[in-house]
Design a protein around this nucleic acid. Structure first.
Length: 546
RNA sequence: GCGCCCGUAGCUCAGGUGGAUAGAGCAGCAGCCUUCUAAGCUGUUGGUCGGAGGUUCGAAUCCUCCCGGGCGCACCA
């Protein structure tokens, strides 16, 4: 148990003795060193529930607090009711052995208690290549999934294929039109169809493989086969792009199977049985206004067909029936208006309010040479994900997508992503890792062989060294908070901060050949390891050399 | 017109779920290479947190209104 964990547990225990059980104890590292090494605002947060003044609570907390001897040098109450802890000198540096001992697992926690959570992301229609917006969703969804797994959830990464709607129909007709055109016949892309060059390429492949007689098929048959071939080709291409982007899914669900498994009828029956549907104007409605939506929604249109809401409800009902206690969906901003009705529908089914959670990803604009890059030749619209990561590299693309909050509008600076200087945050962090690795390379030592046992760490007294150790100690907390908030960008921010101190330390002090060599190797190893762990959670490589 | 998101340094953005004197990075300015990567480091300039009210011990953070930007508002997906 690290010093931080000990303090956290002791505070939680003291709080429960004051009558506040099950509290989340937040520890922070004050910016101002006169505020101690570790501080908590626990007394301030308890003020409301306990109905007492923060400073009075702080005094009672400190009085009941039981800390093992030798851990804390001084405890004080400051400002409005902060409790500041000044660690005994050897304690600060004392986290290093536990970091080394935990190795690749340093920072893991079990707050998720193995509960099943489903993270659904990308879920692009199989009508064309993935664009940069999908890339942002992919990076974010994968990052959230990794953070949840890291904090003890049992995570399933899922991709949902809308393979049954009218968009697919338009893709099929567009492809058929391209086949006709290439066979020398008139063929027009339908209204709202797909004009991208990729369908021309696919049409050429089909004609090559199937021969010209494919174009002679009756229209019904031609469109039907175009649909089959098109869907499977687009899916295969999307999978390939995602694989190269470093994203893998555990489950791919298809809208068509929702129909095949008769989940539609079962879902409608359950909604009706629970009294949430009604008929009006020849249609079947869901009374979502009773659950926070601003208007009721049609389920079954007066022409007898279903709205798209129905398979979506059925799909999420299926997630619930598969045992997930949480379903997190990553959606593009253009779907955000859809959230209230979906939430209402799932509440109508009786699921808890926190079962369904949506993370919104805003659109991505791509800048190169100071100008916005709008179109991709192949896809006919937007910049494709592949174009982007082939130009910048996967590491830079993923890092850039993750360094801002998902719901912020984001300008992707291609020139910056490609630059090999400190201005580029990915490069900067990776360089930090490479530099630590370089020390071991020159020393001729395997970093993994470093042990803290028997090393006198008390020689680590330089301000940069103390700061580095404190920063390393915060890693588990950062990951916990990032996971709880579904915010991978906190991890990139943390890594940049850690790398910054590491660069400063590296620049100012030597490791090899100094009296502090053994201790500094332990520190360098810990930094290297945490940078590597953080990067790998985000799906980014940690190179040994640049 | 209604709903959701956003507005923080010249630029790009953080701000740990209401806490201590609002922070980084770029850019600007001034410096630093006999060294384990200068692919880097150090110092410094720069703020009415869009505006106005409110809630309380305390607000960039919560509430109301206004201004500005984005996205949605179908018996389309």
């Amino acid at each position: 148990m690290t010093a931080l964990e000990t303090i956290r547990a002791a505070l939680a225990h003291a709080a429960s003795r004051l009558g506040a059980s099950d509290v989340e104890v937040a520890l922070e590292r004050p910016r101002d060193p006169t505020h101690g090494d570790v501080a908590t605002n626990l007394a301030l947060t308890l003020a409301k529930t306990l109905g007492q003044k923060p400073r009075a609570i702080a005094e009672r907390l400190v009085a009941t607090l039981e800390l093992p001897p030798g851990l804390v040098r001084k405890t004080e109450i400051a400002g409005p009711g902060f409790i500041n802890f000044f660690l005994a000198g050897e304690q600060v540096v004392g986290v290093l052995p536990s970091i080394i001992a935990a190795g690749k697992d340093y920072g893991k926690s079990d707050v998720g208690r193995k509960a099943k959570v489903n993270v659904e992301f990308v879920s692009a229609n199989p009508t064309g290549p993935l664009h940069v917006g999908h890339g942002r969703g992919a990076a974010l969804g994968d990052g959230i999934a990794a953070l949840l797994a890291w904090t003890g959830w049992s995570v399933t990464r899922e991709f949902y294929v809308n393979d049954a709607g009218t968009q697919i129909d338009k893709m099929a007709r567009s492809l058929w039109a391209r086949v006709q055109q290439q066979a020398g016949r008139p063929g027009a892309i339908p209204e709202g169809g797909y004009h991208g060059e990729y369908l021309n390429e696919l049409a050429a492949t089909i004609l090559k493989k199937e021969g010209k007689r494919f174009a002679d098929l009756p229209e019904d048959e031609g469109v039907r086969r175009s649909r089959e071939i098109g869907v499977s080709a687009q899916r295969a291409e999307q999978d390939q792009d995602l694989r190269e982007f470093g994203v893998r899914f555990d489950v791919v669900s298809r809208e068509s199977t929702i129909y095949e498994r008769r989940l539609i009828d079962a879902t409608l029956a359950e909604l009706a049985a629970k009294g949430h549907t009604f008929e009006a104007d020849g249609a079947l409605w869901l009374r979502t206004t009773a659950l926070g939506d601003d208007k009721d929604r049609v389920l079954k249109k007066s022409d007898g067909t279903y709205t798209y809401l129905v398979p979506d409800i059925a799909y999420h009902r299926d997630k619930h029936q598969r045992g997930f206690v949480k379903a997190i969906d990553v959606w593009g901003a253009d779907h955000h208006g859809y959230i209230p009705r979906m939430r209402a529908a799932l509440q109508a089914l009786g699921y808890p309010g926190d079962f369904f959670h949506v993370e919104i990803v805003q659109l991505v604009r791509v800048m190169r040479g100071g100008e916005e890059v709008r179109f991709s030749k192949r896809s006919g619209e937007f910049v494709s994900l592949r174009d982007l990561f082939e130009e910048t590299g996967v590491d830079a693309a993923r890092y850039f997508f993750l360094m801002k909050r998902g719901d912020s509008q984001f300008v992707f600076d291609v020139d910056l992503a490609k630059s090999q200087t400190e201005e580029n945050p990915v490069f900067y962090v990776q360089m930090g890792h490479a530099r630590m690795s370089g020390i071991f390379r020159v020393a001729g030592r395997e970093p993994g062989s470093v042990r803290a046992d028997g090393v006198d760490l008390s020689v680590l007294t330089q301000p940069e060294e103390i700061e580095l150790v404190k920063e390393l100690a915060e890693f588990p907390d950062v990951l916990r908070r990032a996971a709880a908030a579904y915010e991978p960008h906190r991890v990139t921010g943390y890594l940049e901060g850690l790398a910054r101190i590491a660069h400063a330390w590296y620049h100012k002090y030597r490791v090899l050949g100094e009296p502090e060599e053994a201790a500094r190797l332990v520190l360098a190893r810990a930094v290297q390891q945490v940078l590597a762990t953080g990067l790998s959670l985000l799906g980014i490589r940690a190179p040994e050399r640049m």
